[in-house]
Each structure stands twice: as structure tokens, then as C-alpha cells.
């Protein structure tokens, strides 16, 4: 079967075409702004403008036509309302025009589900991006959140810190490079709060220390990463210990960071369990993960009527009954 998936929860519009075990196309376009941050309406306009050209590009890459597609999947949430609505409207229009079944997909679940294309079975997922930071795993037939940020996402915290240092957006790769030259650890507030995470205190303190002019930026970047990532790995390890699962996957845009990968690799090695990171284009927000999850849902018997396709800005992972496993 062939599934077409449309992703558009935030500033990336992505269209992917997949089969049960292969990505046929995975194209995207990201709205970037000078100041960083996204305006929901601008994101919606961006998605509306690029839908048609991206769809054409995806079909061309896959070498198929709309008639060859068996199901249409779309990101139903969580995300920015106006952006979600553009994507949902497009998906409905395609489904009706070509008489194809439609499936609404939870964005966070899709990030984890795509790893199953690579043989991962039942993982604990650490999902880290600009806006989202959560640890999730399947338990009792639903994806439960075992810890998440109480304020800002880790990607957001890194970008904000990078802007403060005047090194531009997106800050991730630049902070990582600076951090590699850091030698001295500067104490910063640790980000685990009970079972959850919080990065605002860490960010504020790092900015404050930078403004004093007393510290090397390299050391600050290094300390920022070490502190934030240690917290992420700790919360992930707790979920592993609790659920007894034997696989950890790292997904989301921040998965590109090599230090975070290394720390998770060490943690999983010490516990004698597996660790997997998908290729970057399937880690970041993308349409292929939506298509793939939608396909798995459909094959597992999930069916949507058009009236079930209303977008959910605060779509929680545990609202979805995972009947397709």
C-alpha cells in the first residue's frame, strides 16, 4: 500500500509518500524568520502557498500519481491552530477529490512510530524539538508521557540562548560547535523537576552569567548542553527502568546533536539495551512519518469519517488508542 502524509504542525510543511517498509518521497519547506519564533498565521499562509508545489514535487520524486495513493494521512495535532487547519483542509480535499480514506495522525506519536520502519519494536522515545520535549512509551495500549517540559522545549531554549550570544538562528549546530571547545564547567540550574523537566531557569541563569562578561562563551555553551542533556537522559533512563523496555530512540530536530546522542548511547550501553536514531530527515518534522503512522493505523483497522478530522491543537499522545500494534 502507498500512503501520502502531510505534516504541518509548526513552521515546517512536509509531504511524504511511503509504503509499509520504504520512503518513496519526503520533501519539505520550512518557514524561517529573522527573529526566530513563529507567527501562527504566517505559518498557515506559508503552508497554503507551498502545498501545491510540494505535493507535485513529492509525487514526482516517488514517480507516482494521486491515483496510485491508497490513503491520505495528515498531522491532526498538537500544533498551531491555523497551520493545522490548512493541512487538514488540504487532506480532506484530496481524500474527497480522489475518493481515498483519510487518517488523522498525532504528531508526537508519528515521531516515534517512524523508527519502526527500521526494525525498532517497542521503544522508549525521547522526542526533542523546538517546541516539544517529552519522553513517551507505549503502555497499556497508549503512548504515555513519562516526563515532559513544564515550560519551554529544549530546542527553543538552545535557540534563545544562541540569539542572546548573537550567533544566529537556528542555534543548535552553533552552540554544539562552541560547546566542543568548552573546557570548564560553570554550574547552572539542573532541569529535572520531579518527574518532569524545566529549562527556563537554566536559560535565564545562562543568559545572566553571559551578561556579566566573566565567562567564556565556549564554557557557557558547554555547561548549558551538559546540564540540559544530563536532565534529558536522566528522565529517559527513569522511563526505561520503570517500563523495562529494551530500546531507546531519539527523535525530533535536536536529535541532530552529537553530544546528546553520545550520552544516550552511554546510558543505553550501561543498561545493556538498544539505541537508535533515525536519519535526520525522518527525525525532524516531516511528512513521511505522518504517512507511515497513518498507514500503520489504517492497516490496524483505524478508520476516520470526515467529521473525525477536526484538528486538535492540544492533541495528547494518550488520547490515541494504539490498536494497530
Amino acid at each position: 500500500m502507498i500512503a501520502l502524509g502531510i505534516e504541518g504542525t509548526a513552521h515546517t510543511l512536509g509531504i511524504g509518500i511511503v509504503t509499509e517498509d520504504k520512503v518513496l518521497a519526503n520533501v519539505f519547506h520550512t518557514l524561517t524568520t529573522e527573529k526566530g519564533g513563529i507567527h501562527p498565521k504566517e505559518a498557515a499562509e506559508h503552508h497554503a502557498r507551498l502545498l501545491k508545489p510540494l505535493l507535485r514535487k513529492a509525487l514526482e520524486t516517488a514517480g507516482i500519481t494521486m491515483e496510485d495513493v491508497d490513503i491520505i494521512a495528515f498531522s491532526q495535532g498538537p500544533g498551531l491552530g491555523p497551520a493545522l487547519r490548512v493541512v487538514a483542509t488540504a487532506a480532506r480535499a484530496l481524500a474527497i477529490r480522489y475518493s481515498k480514506p483519510i487518517v488523522g495522525v498525532n504528531h508526537c506519536i508519528a515521531h516515534v512510530e517512524i523508527t519502526k520502519m527500521f526494525g525498532v519494536k517497542d521503544p522508549v522515545g525521547l522526542y526533542v524539538s523546538g517546541g516539544n520535549t517529552q519522553v513517551l512509551a507505549l503502555e497499556g495500549g497508549r503512548y504515555r508521557v513519562f516526563g515532559e517540559t513544564l515550560d519551554i522545549g529544549i530546542g527553543n531554549a538552545i535557540d534563545t540562548f544562541a540569539r542572546e550570544l548573537g550567533i544566529g538562528f537556528p542555534g543548535g549546530p552553533k552552540i554544539e560547535k562552541l560547546a566542543q571547545k568548552g573546557r570548564e564547567y560553570i554550574e547552572l540550574p539542573y532541569a529535572v523537576k520531579g518527574m518532569d523537566l524545566s529549562f527556563s531557569g537554566l536559560l535565564t541563569e545562562a543568559v545572566r552569567k553571559y551578561r556579566t562578561g566573566k565567562y567564556k562563551v565556549e564554557d557557557l555553551a558547554y555547561s548549558f548542553q551538559e546540564t540540559a542533556f544530563a536532565a534529558l537522559v536522566e528522565v529517559t533512563e527513569r522511563a526505561v527502568a520503570h517500563t523495562g523496555k529494551e530500546e531507546v530512540v531519539l527523535v525530533g530536530g535536536v536529535a541532530a546533536n552529537n553530544r546528546l546522542r553520545e550520552m544516550l548511547r552511554i546510558m543505553t550501553e550501561d543498561r545493556g539495551i538498544k539505541f537508535f536514531v533515525p536519519p535526520y530527515d525522518l527525525c525532524r518534522d516531516n511528512g513521511a512519518m505522518i504517512a507511515y503512522t497513518g498507514l500503520r493505523m489504517y492497516l490496524g483497522g483505524v478508520r476516520f469519517k470526515i467529521e473525525d478530522t477536526v484538528v486538535k491543537q492540544k492533541f495528547r499522545t494518550d488520547e490515541v488508542e494504539v490498536v494497530w500494534e
Binding site: Y185, E187, Y190, E226, T227, A230, V233, E234, E262, M263, L264, I266, M267, D270
Partner: peptide
């Protein structure tokens, strides 16, 4: 002790 985090953080926590 946890090998994944630097010693300074590990000991402190």
C-alpha cells in the same frame, strides 16, 4: 555514578 554525565554534575546531583 552515571558515565553519561560529566563528573561535576554527577557528583553534585
Amino acid at each position: 555514578p552515571k558515565r553519561y554525565r560529566i563528573k561535576e554534575i554527577d557528583v553534585k546531583l
